[in-house]
Design a protein around this nucleic acid. Structure first.
Lengths: 347, 347
DNA sequence: TGTCAACACGCAAACGTTTTAGGGATTTCG
DNA sequence: CGAAATCCCTAAAACGTTTGCGTGTTGACA
């Protein structure tokens, strides 16, 4: 195992000073070309790389972004990470990932252990527990210490920072309009309970779309799933709820589901009930994940564009980090466009 | 925005030396209790946290692990990250994520930019391109610099480091045995090209299982997918290949697919060909992700246990980092248990 | 009063960089 | 030929820590 080359080692070996080596490697014109050549050759031979930690200490910049998300085994969040990583990399930044597991305490710890010089800024989506506790002191403190935060998806209105979201209401509206345009007359929605923010917003979008088309929203076409007993490994309850809903509602010819799982589960149920998709009933989902792509038939869905959310978040953060004058500028909230991806569950 | 408290600032404010402050905070007995109290109170007031970067520089340890994986929008890899993060956190380590996007060049760059003091060790699964190029100099160099690597899943035999794998051959064997036990006579396999070693191993397991049951492997039942033109958003080529394969092979009554995507795509094709699952053709997949859970019918599959792979990898790496005497010990290869999850695509 | 231990603290080095300030030696120019 | 300019290089500080060692002040004891 070779000793890592440092300026000091090279300097001693070549019998020059450390600063000479440093300057030679950075092609300073203060150094004679002969010496430069000698130093560079030696450095190359020994595979010298400047120690990043030393640089970080000196520059007070780590060129590292901290991402804190509630969950990683989740398509949406991974696409966001992907977007962040992609943009950050082109700007020479690395990305360090912390998981809150939806826990307030873990979120605080994560913020704490990274906000000690390890990173230059945060990109995060807050945990459900934090949202329900409404305790945001950790975010405020971090910002107060001069560490910028970009919030995405699950944002908090009265925290002063840049934010990136999608317009859930509008996206849902477009999705439902698609069903209307495809000649659906009785459009049902399968959504979450109201306390889930995005579910609520998407439900609003559904109602808006109906109103715009002079269709009176029908309470019996509205299925608010109770997800208490539903977990990653137990979806039978979900299936039961949806089955019951569909069986009792007569004449449905279109379904808008506020997420992938609900959509594919609905498809499963319809298949059991011998309904044809899309001939008898059309479906539009939300979130373009693997499930939508590989469902049978492939699901028409709203692309949440996690990648773009990630990219934009990273862009916003890095710009704030690198532009001195931007430091105290007013904060922006970016709304990312979503688009509907038409596949085979709609006509 | 408050100026971040440092030892120097506290020292000046309290009119003592920096070392006194440092020692007081670390409860050194060299310091009088009165001074200690004073310093601690002040530090608490100003929310002092030791600067991690400075510590890293001094200790030559960053307490950070680098993860380099080919893809993040992928269920298996995210469960591995989850496992790594979970274990690393309990040991006070953070996790920095680099994505290779299956590209050799990006893998090299990632290794390079992190191996300059930013991290203490790597956990990685190598890119397909790296595998097919068989160029591993970057791994060797990293190890040579004294930075330990733990390889998981896609490992390389002649790189000297700790490794974590599942017994792909055995797992595949069990999967195929399951088909045999369920009365399949003509079992096909849909697998990758040979250079992807997990594909290769699973293919071997398939052959072993057949041999054990005195079935002669039939070349025409072996489908090696050419995945060059396949991407996250373009699976039509995959579908075409599988369609062609199934159409030309007569009398298949069982399929073993080496991953989820292949499995659900096969199901899609079978459905188009009006084959019933599992009555006409049974299927077993590999990797228990969302696709398997939500496929119709739900897919019988092999659970790869990514979480445990992650945990074990992190454990191995951290132990090697923290045990001086272990530094030169012989390297271990851990084999993680897999289990088959029976759902509705088998009888 | 002199010696010595105990106590409480400061100095300085070290980690690996970059950069400012400066300093000899050589060249240039009037 | 003397002064100024140019060239090539070094010293040292700084980033924020930790820590071995040195040192000055006590107080006790003989």
């Amino acid at each position: 195992m070779k000793q890592r080359a440092t300026l000091k080692i090279i300097a001693k070996e070549l019998d020059v000073s450390i600063s000479t080596v440093s300057k030679a490697l950075r092609d300073s014109k203060e150094i004679g070309s002969e010496t430069k050549e000698k130093v560079k050759a030696f450095a190359k031979l020994y595979n010298y790389r400047p120690n990043n930690i030393a640089l970080s200490l000196k520059n007070k910049k780590t060129k590292t972004l901290g991402i804190i998300i509630p969950e990683i085994v989740h398509h949406f969040f991974t696409t966001v990470i992907y977007g962040i990583e992609e943009y950050a990399n082109t700007k020479g930044y690395n990305v360090i990932v912390g998981l809150s597991n939806e826990s307030f305490a873990k979120e605080v710890i994560n913020l704490d252990t990274l906000a000690n010089g390890s990173i230059d800024g945060f990109i995060m989506s807050v945990a459900k527990e934090t949202l329900s506790k409404k305790d945001f002191h950790h975010l405020r403190e971090t910002i107060n210490q001069g560490i910028p935060i970009v919030l995405f998806d699950r944002i908090i209105d009265d925290i002063e920072c840049d934010k990136v979201i999608v317009n859930d209401t509008k996206a849902a509206e477009i999705a439902v309009q698609k069903l209307v345009d495809s000649n659906c007359k009785n459009i049902a929605i399968i959504t979450t309970q109201d306390y889930v923010n995005v579910g609520k917003l998407r439900t609003n979008g559904y109602i808006n779309a109906l109103n715009k088309n002079k269709i009176t929203p029908d309470e019996s076409l509205l299925c608010k799933v109770n997800d208490e007993s539903i977990s990653v490994d137990n979806f039978t309850d979900l299936e039961d709820q949806i089955t019951e809903f569909i069986e009792k509602s007569q004449g449905i010819d279109g379904i808008f589901a506020v997420n992938e799982i609900y959509a594919v589960t609905a498809m499963k149920v319809l298949r059991k009930l011998n309904k044809r998709i899309p001939e008898d009933i059309q479906i539009v989902g939300f979130t373009d994940g693997v499930l939508s792509k590989h469902a049978f038939p492939p699901l028409t869905t709203v692309d949440q564009n996690g990648f773009e959310i990630g990219r934009t978040s990273a862009k916003l953060l890095i710009e704030r980090l690198e532009n001195e004058q931007k430091e105290d500028e007013v904060f922006e909230t970016h709304v990312i466009d979503t688009k509907i991806i038409e596949r085979d569950t709609t006509l």
